[in-house]
Amino acid sequence: MSQQSLHGSGPSDDENSSEETAAGGQVFASAQGADDLLDEIDSVLESNSEEFVRSFVQKGGQ
């Protein structure tokens, strides 16, 4: 695979594997990182969730 390993840290991984070794580079991000992500979600989440969800109407497909 061209980008990075598919394989995250598992029980068989090196003892020394640190937080950075997971696939994607930083999967086990810090709690701060998680909070930042939630803040970012807040910043792009449709401001009126109720109305957004109500207006999301699709026709059935296959």
Partner: peptide, 20 residues
């Protein structure tokens, strides 16, 4: 891209990628 929450995860390096 600016609205996608998946893209946020991806940009934060929280998901594995296979292709560039």
């Amino acid at each position: 891209p600016q609205r996608s929450l998946f893209t946020k995860l991806r940009s934060a390096g929280r998901v594995a990628t296979l292709v560039s």
